[in-house]
Design a protein around this nucleic acid. Sequence first.
DNA 1: TTACAAACATGATAAATCCTCACATTTGCA
DNA 2: TGCAAATGTGAGGATTTATCATGTTTGTAA
Lengths: 213, 213
Amino acid sequence: MDEKVAAKPDQAAIASPRRAPTQQRSRERVERMLAAASSLIAEQGSDAMRMGEVAERAGVSIGSLYQFFPDKRAIVWALAERYTAESQACIASALKDVSDAEALKQAFSELVDIYYRLFLAEPVMRDIWSGTQADKALRELELADSRANAEFLVAVLKRLRPGADPIALETTAFLVWQMGEAAVRLAISVDREEGDRLVAAYKRMALRELLAE
Amino acid sequence: MDEKVAAKPDQAAIASPRRAPTQQRSRERVERMLAAASSLIAEQGSDAMRMGEVAERAGVSIGSLYQFFPDKRAIVWALAERYTAESQACIASALKDVSDAEALKQAFSELVDIYYRLFLAEPVMRDIWSGTQADKALRELELADSRANAEFLVAVLKRLRPGADPIALETTAFLVWQMGEAAVRLAISVDREEGDRLVAAYKRMALRELLAE
DNA sequence: TTACAAACATGATAAATCCTCACATTTGCA
DNA sequence: TGCAAATGTGAGGATTTATCATGTTTGTAA
């Protein structure tokens, strides 16, 4: 009854907990592990994070860490998943009632600002999504997240432009969303002033596209 | 006359050869090392590339590898630098004589296609620029490259829109360029059909912005 | 030609990490 | 109360990067 990594040791794709904590005690310990990892990532980056340090800071043994996480990346992945869940909820509610161009401008602009500020303030998010491209599991999580977010945008666009080709809307929304992530990542990697300009330029560009036709 | 890694052992940023090969023999060996690394990256990705394998495939000892490259990332960096040098030359010549909107449309579209095809065909490029965000030296190289490419675009825009604010043009060009890299990276990570749609959508979006006002 | 310094080459091995595993302890429940 | 399942532990196996003392080759000046 041992759910090993199964058939293909393909690496990279699967990153779910090796074993779900069922007892109260262990659930708390897993929380401590994630908190420890989070603080270490904030301080040094996930690459420099050492499993030994995570265990020590969480007050557990190395073995316990591996009881619940199959490997190091799984810890980062677990943190990433929480962020995506939170942000999806936020985005969904922000776009829920948008039904005209002006409201879209408003809501979109606010969402971008929130995202930008979040990245400026949260070293953990910054670090996690940096590694996105290199780690297959993370890349897939981000793509799935981006598609989900794009769907919210598609719903709005369908209301604003009922006649438009659904596939085109889908493509536009997905692209705009990914561009936004790229724009914010770029913005935080240059100085603040230029970053602000880049984010503003992105907003204009994206809205022009979203409201086009 | 020995350009060591110098002053700050800050890590990450500097990745120049530990020692420049001066003799013919060693220059050839360094080429073999880079070729070996390149083929290994194509096969397995730079993360899975092992220094021992590089040495073996290049027909040199581990020690020789470290004679010319301070660490593993320096090898990847060296390959990346070659690509940027090549592509910059290509871009410069493509944009050199553009002086009206129609020509810009043409040249820009072609450049994006070239870039897209290159990424589809070259696993090494794909892999190298994937790690971009995680590796400080690579990120800086890419930013510098992107700025340089944006400059070519700025030169064109200044011709097309002489009255425009230079800083705004700079921002637009830089953003458009980075969006392009993001768009292509996104396009190659989904199926071909959707990728084509995304690249086409990016072109429209970028050109709309470049020719706006 | 010879001698010598600088460039180059080598690979055993130090050092750093990730992760496993055999065994100990705690918990929930029949 | 007793037992199976869940949980906890940390020494050590395995892998990999990078170093360094030592040996070899090359260019060159006398």
